[in-house]
Design a binder for these strands. Structure first.
Lengths: 190, 190
DNA sequence: CAAAAGTGGAGAATATTCCTCCGCTTGTTT
DNA sequence: AAACAAGCGGAGGAATATTCTCCACTTTTG
C-alpha cells in the first residue's frame, strides 16, 4: 500500500471518529470525507460501505483502549491511586462515546470478526487491570469491565450545544463524579 | 378540544418519548404515529412539524421533572437519605435521555418560549431541592442542578443492543455508581 | 340526530445520503 | 528521469428516506 494512501485512510478514520463523538453516528459520509480533507471517492475505496467505516472506527478505539490499559497496568504497581485516576481520565479522552455510537448502529447484523476480537481483547485487558485495582482496594468489587467501559462511554456522549455552553467544564465534573462513584462503597453507606 | 382528540395527542407525545428514549431522536414520524396507534395525519394536525413534536416531548418531560422534584421536596423533611435516593431513581425513570436527545436536535434554532420557561422552572425547582439536600449533607456541595439533570440524562441514553443483552441490569448499576458519585467527598479522598 | 370536530393513510413532493465512474495526479521503481 | 501502477477527487445518477397534504369517512357532543 502506498504511503500517502495509508495516511489518507487513517485521516478518514480519525475524522469519522471525532465527528461521531461530537454529533453522533449518523454523520453523512460526505462530511467525513470533507473533514478528513479527502474526496468521497477515496473514502469509498477504503471502506466498501458505511458499516465498514464504523467498524474501522470501533477497531481503532478498541485498540487504543487496549494499549492504554496495558500502560496503566504497568503504572498501577508504582502509585496505585494516581495510576487509576489517570487511567480513567485517559479512557475518557479516547471518545468511547463514539465507540458506543458506532456499535449501536450495527443493531441487527452481527459484528465483524476483527471487531469482536478487538473487543474481547480490550475487555480482557480491562478485566485484569480492574481485578488488580480491586485488589488494591481502589475500586468497588462489584464493578465489571463492561460496566466501566460503558460508564466512560456514557459520559462522553455528545451533549446539546446549549448544555455545552452553559457548563463548559461538564466533562471534567462528570469524571469527578464517576471517579467517586467507582470507589469501594464506604461502610455505612447504603 | 374533543376528549378523544386530547387522548390521541397525549398518546403521540408518549410514543415519541419512548421511541426517542429507546432509539434516539431521529425516529421517523410514521413510526411514532404507528406506535401511538394513530394515523400520520393525526400526528400532523397536532404538531405542525417534527420540531413541534420534539418540543412537546421536552415540555412533557420537564413538567414531570418539576412535579417529581416538588414531591421530593416534601419527602426530604421526613427521611432525608431515603428521599434523596428515591428522587434520583425517579428522575432516572423519567427518560431524561429523551430530553437530551430532543433538545440536541434543535442545535441551531432557538428554543420555543414555553420550553425554555418549563426548563427554567424545572431547574429552579431542582436547585432548591439540591440546596436542601446539600444542607443535609447528602450531596456534594459543588453539584449544580444542570449537572445533576445532565448526569441522569447520560445514564439513560440508549445503549447498543449487545450491551443491553450482556448486562441487563446496567441501568441499575449506573444508578448505584451515580448515587455514590453524588455523595459529599469523603475526607481523604482526592 | 345533525353539525362540528376529528380521523387515517395513500402518495406527491422534497430532502438526504449513498455510491459509481473515469480523466487526471501522485508515488514508486528501475 | 521515465514509465507504470496506484490512487485521487468530486460531479451527479440511483436509491432511499422523510415530510407533509388532502379529503372522503367516522366519531363525539350538544
Amino acid at each position: 500500500m502506498r504511503a500517502d494512501a495509508l495516511r489518507r485512510r487513517t485521516a478518514v478514520v480519525q475524522a469519522a471518529r471525532s465527528l461521531i463523538a461530537a454529533r453522533g453516528s449518523d454523520v453523512a459520509l460526505d462530511a467525513v470525507a470533507d473533514a478528513a480533507g479527502v474526496g468521497i471517492g477515496t473514502l469509498y475505496r477504503n471502506f466498501d460501505s458505511r458499516a465498514a467505516l464504523l467498524d474501522a472506527v470501533a477497531l481503532a478505539i478498541l485498540d487504543e483502549v487496549h494499549a492504554v490499559t496495558q500502560e496503566a497496568a504497568q503504572a498501577l504497581a508504582h502509585s496505585p491511586q494516581d495510576a487509576w485516576d489517570d487511567y480513567v481520565r485517559r479512557l475518557v479522552g479516547l471518545e468511547l462515546g463514539a465507540l458506543t455510537a458506532a456499535l449501536a448502529d450495527h443493531a441487527g447484523d452481527a459484528l465483524a470478526r476483527d471487531v469482536r476480537e478487538a473487543q474481547d481483547r480490550a475487555l480482557d485487558g480491562v478485566g485484569s487491570l480492574l481485578a488488580a485495582a480491586q485488589g488494591e482496594g481502589l475500586v468497588r468489587d462489584d464493578l465489571t469491565p463492561l460496566e466501566l467501559v460503558t460508564a466512560v462511554g456514557m459520559i462522553t456522549r455528545p451533549q446539546p450545544e446549549a448544555v455545552r455552553r452553559a457548563a463548559p467544564d461538564l466533562r471534567e465534573r462528570m469524571v469527578s463524579i464517576l471517579l467517586q462513584g467507582l470507589r469501594p462503597e464506604q461502610r455505612g453507606a447504603r
